[in-house]
Design a protein around this nucleic acid. Structure first.
Length: 800
RNA sequence: GCGGGCGUGGCGGAAUGGCAGACGCGCUGGUCUUAGGAACCAGUGGUUCACCCGUGCAGGUUCGAGUCCUGUCGCCCGCACCA
């Protein structure tokens, strides 16, 4: 038979659907397995060739687990709130809900054409009020626990999207989404206290099966550091608290730097002789975008505060105070003690402003460069710390500072609270009202969902107000607390809100009384294996872990971590090795590929293309090899004779079953496919196989190429659905051959091979090697110094 | 600058410290064909061809190194004045 994919693909997709083959039932008699892919944002462009890679990978894992007897939950949904849809809606004057509906329809059709074993009965959509009801509910719980708060603050503002961005959404100083300039704007924003979970977000990574680069990236992003806060008195009377990770170098502090935004600078206005100059610098710093600030990294600038000096608490020495934008107002206390001898940035600044450099850790040449090594240095010029190692000096000075009440041990994080407001229409409304009397008041939970009002125009205003502010009928309401007049919050939630808990909804997607029933959550959670992109590590992954921990704290979830295992796929690049993009003209359309090679051809090639975790360039030529392989599998039906086991093929089958089983578990799909290709090549060499053997082969192939496997199965006369059949098992003993060909080396160089019994002893192997005609010339007349034999592998004879 | 990763044929890529280049693409020759951009068969790292040389480069450990160690060069990704 042949692979007529045009008809076969559709035929089996329909059969699976009619049989509800992949719908997960809560069945406690079987072990559960929750496999998760990141649900897509249904963009107007339709499916990208990159989408099927992680989907197929997790589909293979899900299908195999299902065949191995697990109760598998493998769902999909739509992360459908967001800017591109809204921008499209504005441009074409179509309601974003309609745009979303159309995009989802298109995506659904394209994804279904891949034959993935998703449980479509659990499909969810973050823009559906019955879904975002629960997003709002979670927000209310955060609000009630004091983890959501509104704050006037300088935020990142994208000049093109006209919207506020979270720190995680600013990449390299520009907007992560559109690449436009990001400026600082002071706005009143809802914030979520993710920082309160910083410690747990780091500590609980331990023991999770996350790939290492994901763990390190999360840890670095959270950026924990240990140090001390130290109080410096000033000649102005106010104290300045600085944060330092090197309290041991306190005796080397020769000046102080505070952030331009530091509040004391304004307070000291009358005491500063050069306040005009100071003010000018502050204005300049405020005007700079993040991008400009990072561009100017190397060139330190600053202004000395003329009229106020700080006093080093350990030696009473007066030191000058500067403002400089190399000190950030948002980290630590916004003030530092500068130790130019042992900090690179302070050293650069000191050189530029001609400030003294005092060595307090011996071991370097501090006049020529900062000595920052904490491992080898010995304290000097530091009175009672002299002679100590850095690590001991740290402990001693902290003890000293604490005793004197001038300092305290302190842990800091780079992680900032999550800016949760967006001045956009297409997002979840914030279920709060602002009452003149009562302040911010939560809507009663039974009134949720608070749905989006119908409005005419979706554009945000130039001054950054949400389009919802124009819906006055909706905005003006009554306070649920006192009944007086109140106004609704007009900002909406960021698109990361709906995706922060979507996997929980899959457990019980149609529940109207809770985000999911406790029993369903307890049964399915945590997710056993979650695959997604590296670009989400410091965004979605961190946010959703935070929400899961919060839900654990309030008793909704029974697990502390939502995901047991996390892997990440590599990108599929264009044929030229560059990232695929319209502007580069190297985009491959999955629909076109399916039309030419069938769903199985695409699936197989996406898995065969290379190491799953690495990027790989697409090749229009290479995909042919996968199509040929499928055709050759279909062609095996012509070679079927009889039942049972073919002697010559038996061990090959056992080896292949073992290899494919193991490789799927470690995501080595490319070598699993290679093993099946080798087996097929061998069958063609033998020239015949049995019906049972072909059934085994297509069972192995089924997770990768389910359509052709089902078709061959039916052709062979089987009446079951192969996708639900039992996964083949292997006999370890039968994966071994009776005889093995071993390499024979003389002095470590390969000189030949000999065939020996698989269970041959070392002595037998060496004897066989020495007896070989090709080996003799290399050892005859020489003294054997050493003989090494590795069973099943090689013999190495060392001669002189 | 810091953190992570990677350098293997013409290409994508394989190799628990044990026969480097599995598997696939491409290429060469052949079979069959009116035809071949189909299918099938054979071959395919280099070479001065029983030797020898080959995993970015230079050393080291080892009976044996693509794999481990040290140094070095190059590339990719993330973070980036976080005190």
């Amino acid at each position: 038979m042949r692979y007529e994919y045009n008809t076969i693909d559709k035929k089996w997709q329909k059969k699976w659907e009619e049989a509800h083959a992949f719908e997960a039932k809560t069945d406690t008699s079987k072990p559960k397995y929750f496999a998760l892919v990141e649900f897509p944002y249904p963009s107007g462009q339709g499916l990208h060739i990159g989408h099927p890679r992680p989907y197929t990978a997790m589909d293979i894992i899900s299908r195999k687990k299902r065949m191995q007897g697990y109760n598998v939950l493998f769902p999909l949904g739509w992360d459908a709130f967001g800017l591109p849809t809204e921008n499209y809606a504005i441009k074409h004057q179509i309601h974003p809900a309609i745009v979303t509906k159309n995009n989802i329809a298109h995506f659904t059709e394209q994804i279904k054409a891949l034959g993935l074993s998703f449980d479509w009965s659990r499909e969810i959509d973050t823009t559906d009020p019955s879904y975002y009801k629960w997003t709002q509910w979670i927000f209310l719980q955060l609000f009630k626990k004091g983890l959501a708060y509104k704050k006037e603050m300088a935020v990142n503002f994208c000049t093109s999207c006209k919207v506020v961005l979270a720190n995680e959404e600013v990449v390299g100083g520009v907007c992560e989404r559109c690449g436009s300039e990001v400026v600082r704007k002071v706005k009143s924003q809802w914030m979520l206290k993710i920082t309160e979970y910083a410690e747990r977000l780091i500590n609980d990574l331990e023991g999770l099966d996350f790939i290492e680069r994901v763990k390190t990236q999360e840890i670095n992003w959270i950026g924990r550091s240990e140090g001390a806060e130290v109080r410096f008195a000033t000649t102005a009377g106010d104290d300045v608290i600085v944060y330092t990770t090197r309290p041991d170098t306190l005796f080397g502090a020769t000046y102080m730097v505070v952030a331009p935004e530091h509040e004391l600078v304004t307070k000291w206005k009358d005491q500063l002789k050069n306040f005009d100059e100071v003010e000018a610098y502050r204005e300049e710093a405020a005007r700079k975008s993040d991008f400009e600030r990072t561009e100017l990294v190397k060139d330190k600038t600053g202004v000395r505060l003329d009229g106020v000096e700080a006093i080093n608490p350990v030696n009473g020495r007066q030191i000058p105070i500067f403002i400089s934008d190399y000190v950030l107002s948002t980290y630590g206390t916004g003030a530092i003690m500068a130790v130019p001898a042992h900090d690179t940035r302070d050293w650069e600044f000191a050189k530029k402003f001609d400030l003294p450099i005092i060595e307090v850790v011996a071991g370097g040449d501090v006049q020529n460069e900062a000595f920052t090594d904490v491992e080898t240095g010995i304290m000097t010029n530091s009175e009672f710390l002299n002679g100590l190692e850095v690590k001991d000096a740290k402990a001693k000075i902290i003890e000293f500072l604490t005793e004197k009440g001038i300092g305290v041990k302190k842990v800091n994080y780079k992680l900032r609270d999550w800016v949760f407001s967006r001045q956009r229409y297409w997002g979840e409304p914030v279920p709060l009202v602002n009452c003149e009397k009562c302040g911010w008041v939560a809507l009663p939970e039974e009134t949720l969902p608070l749905t989006l009002p119908e409005i005419e125009r979706f554009e945000p205003t130039d001054d950054g107000e949400s389009p919802l502010s124009k819906a006055t009928d909706w905005v003006n309401t009554t306070c649920p607390c006192c009944g007086g007049p109140a106004k609704r919050e007009t900002d909406t939630m960021p698109n990361w809100a709906g995706s922060s808990w979507y996997f929980l909804r899959y457990c019980d997607p149609h529940n109207n009384d809770a985000l999911a029933a406790k029993e369903a959550l307890d049964y399915w959670m945590p997710v056993d294996w979650y695959n997604g992109g590296m670009e989400h590590v410091t965004l979605h992954l961190l946010y959703s872990r935070f929400w899961a921990k919060f839900l654990y704290d309030i008793g909704v979830l029974s697990c502390k971590e939502p995901y047991l295992k996390r892997t990440a796929h590599g990108m599929i690049l264009g044929e030229n090795g560059e990232k695929m993009s319209k502007s580069r003209g190297n985009v491959i359309n999955p629909e076109v590929v399916i039309a030419e090679y069938g769903a199985d051809g695409l699936r197989l090639y996406e898995m065969f293309i290379g190491d799953f975790e690495k990027s790989a360039p697409w090749s229009q030529a290479s995909i042919k090899g996968c199509k040929r392989f499928i055709d050759r599998v279909a062609g095996l039906t012509d070679l079927v004779k009889g039942e049972g086991v073919t002697q010559k093929l038996e061990s090959s089958f056992h080896k292949t079953i073992k290899k494919v089983t193991e490789d799927i578990d470690s995501m080595k799909f490319n070598t699993a496919i290679a093993a099946m290709m080798s087996l097929v090549n061998e069958i063609y060499e033998v020239g015949t196989l049995t019906r049972d053997e072909l059934r085994t082969l297509i069972t192995l192939l089924c997770p990768f190429a389910p359509h052709i496997s089902e078709e061959v199965n039916e052709f062979l006369g089987y009446t079951d659905i192969l996708s639900l059949a039992a996964w083949p098992t292997y006999d370890e003993a039968k994966t071994k051959d009776d005889t093995v060909e071993i390499a024979v080396q003389v002095c470590g160089k390969l000189r030949g091979t000999v065939v020996v019994a698989a269970n041959a002893t070392r002595e037998e192997m060496i004897a066989a090697a020495k007896a070989d005609e090709k080996i003799k010339p290399f050892i005859d007349g020489k003294t054997v110094i050493k003989e090494i034999a590795v069973p099943g592998k090689l013999v190495n004879i060392v001669v002189k």
